[in-house]
Computed example of a mutant assay.
Amino acid sequence: MVRSYKWLGGIGYILSFIPYASFISSILVAVAWILMGKDTRERIFTILGVLMLITYVLAITLIIWLILSFLPVAFAGTMAIAPGAMTTPWKMGEVFGRFFAQIIGMIIIGLVLVGLAITVFILDIVAHFRAGRIFDNRWFKIAGWMRIILAIAIIIAIPLTVFMIISSGPSMLPSTPFGPSYGAILSLLFTILWPMLIALLVGLLATIFSIIAFFTISEEATTTQSSSQLQQQ
């Protein structure tokens, strides 16, 4: 079993760098943690994998719900402005009333999704440290520390970026007869978004260390750990 989650986890984290394959990445990583939990009998791994799957399914559901909710409103708006449209006000009110009710539902699901994402992030850190101890793998521990640094970087980057956006303005762009140059715009964006870029870099490093950690799992360490736990039971 070690080979299955070893490769599933490593490949899953690699696919997270590919935008159109990120949905496959989420599933592979979640399954890898679940299989690791089954093999090592560590509940934290299983819980993390299950919550990853739940978060992924809930996010997809929210996106589909959002798309389906906007379609009737867009259609009603088109009918209302179309020449000769016979849409009555009460029908329009009914459509928009349902839309706002769905918006409230989506907000609730969104809040639940945020809570799940935070929980998964915390469990992900704990699971990496636990895996590092079980497999005697320093890369899991490094990946765990990088996630802690990532959390700190995000906490610092968000208010700092907001402050940079508020304090900056069009006056910071050197003007030309044809308006600000692309170089000036890119320079301004880098000046504003550099805290988020640092957080992004830390996140990339954390993912890279997770890739290395999964690929360097020792089969002997897994077998020994599982056997010792079975003997204790």
Score class of each variant (00 low, 15 high):
residue 208 I to V: 15
residue 109 I to D: 03
residue 66 L to K: 07
residue 13 Y to P: 05
residue 68 L to P: 06
residue 191 T to F: 13
residue 87 T to P: 03
residue 71 L to P: 01
residue 171 S to F: 01
residue 101 A to D: 09
residue 69 S to N: 02
residue 171 S to D: 11
residue 29 V to T: 12
residue 154 I to R: 02
residue 207 T to H: 04
residue 191 T to A: 15
residue 150 L to K: 04
residue 198 I to Y: 02
residue 44 I to N: 07
residue 58 L to P: 12
residue 68 L to F: 02
residue 5 Y to M: 05
residue 225 Q to D: 12
residue 225 Q to Y: 08
residue 28 L to P: 12
residue 94 E to M: 08
residue 143 A to Y: 03
residue 124 D to Y: 01
residue 149 I to H: 07
residue 211 I to M: 08
residue 84 G to H: 02
residue 53 L to C: 09
residue 177 P to K: 11
residue 94 E to W: 00
residue 72 P to Y: 01
residue 40 T to Q: 09
residue 144 G to T: 08
residue 93 G to R: 11
residue 91 K to G: 03
residue 77 G to K: 04
residue 213 A to M: 05
residue 84 G to A: 07
residue 68 L to M: 10
residue 222 T to G: 15
residue 175 S to T: 12
residue 221 A to D: 13
residue 14 I to G: 08
residue 84 G to V: 02
residue 13 Y to W: 00
residue 71 L to T: 03
residue 226 S to M: 13
residue 90 W to D: 15
residue 137 N to W: 00
residue 147 R to Q: 15
residue 104 I to V: 00
residue 81 I to K: 06
residue 7 W to R: 06
residue 181 S to N: 13
residue 29 V to C: 13
residue 146 M to I: 07
residue 201 L to C: 13
residue 218 S to G: 11
residue 178 F to A: 15
residue 127 A to N: 13
residue 111 L to I: 04
residue 169 G to V: 02
residue 127 A to R: 10
residue 161 T to V: 06
residue 162 V to P: 12
residue 21 A to V: 14
residue 43 R to N: 15
residue 171 S to K: 10
residue 8 L to E: 05
residue 89 P to F: 05
residue 172 M to Q: 07
residue 14 I to N: 05
residue 76 A to H: 02
residue 65 W to M: 10
residue 84 G to T: 00
residue 9 G to Q: 06
residue 44 I to A: 07
residue 229 Q to T: 09
residue 67 I to Q: 03
residue 18 I to R: 06
residue 2 V to P: 04
residue 145 W to H: 10
residue 179 G to A: 14
residue 164 M to V: 01
residue 152 I to P: 04
residue 77 G to Y: 01
residue 224 T to W: 01
residue 117 A to R: 01
residue 27 I to M: 08
residue 134 I to P: 08
residue 191 T to S: 15
residue 232 Q to A: 15
residue 139 W to T: 02
residue 108 I to V: 04
residue 56 Y to H: 04
residue 140 F to M: 12
residue 10 G to H: 07
residue 53 L to G: 09
residue 32 A to H: 02
residue 219 E to Q: 01
residue 101 A to V: 03
residue 189 L to I: 08
residue 192 I to T: 11
residue 85 A to C: 11
residue 233 Q to M: 10
residue 84 G to S: 05
residue 93 G to P: 09
residue 101 A to C: 01
residue 14 I to W: 00
residue 7 W to P: 03
residue 63 I to F: 03
residue 108 I to R: 00
residue 40 T to S: 10
residue 186 L to G: 06
residue 150 L to Q: 13
residue 53 L to P: 09
residue 173 L to S: 07
residue 200 L to E: 06
